[in-house]
Amino acid sequence: MEPLKPEDIGKILASRPNVKIEDIHEYQRLVMESLRARSPFAPKPEGPAPAPGADRLDELHEKIFGSPEEKSRERVT
């Protein structure tokens, strides 16, 4: 997975003061893990099922990129 470009990270941090670089790191990790798990060829992990990360991914996505309502408002304005 291609790393986010520094300028894109800079834009996010500048436009959303409540987002920290740690949030972006965690978001990138969760995106990578969820993407990896979606391949039909990914072997099933051994041991207990991994902790669910989908809710956290949605939460971070909304925090970093805005909620659908915010985006909709941005489009209208």
């Binding site: 997975m1 990138q28 995106v31 969820s34 993407l35 391949s39 039909p40 060829f41 991914l57 996505h61």
Partner: peptide, 13 residues
Amino acid sequence: EYPYGGIVQPLQD
């Protein structure tokens, strides 16, 4: 088009 992070995802199968 992957719903997160602006990623394009290969559909491996």
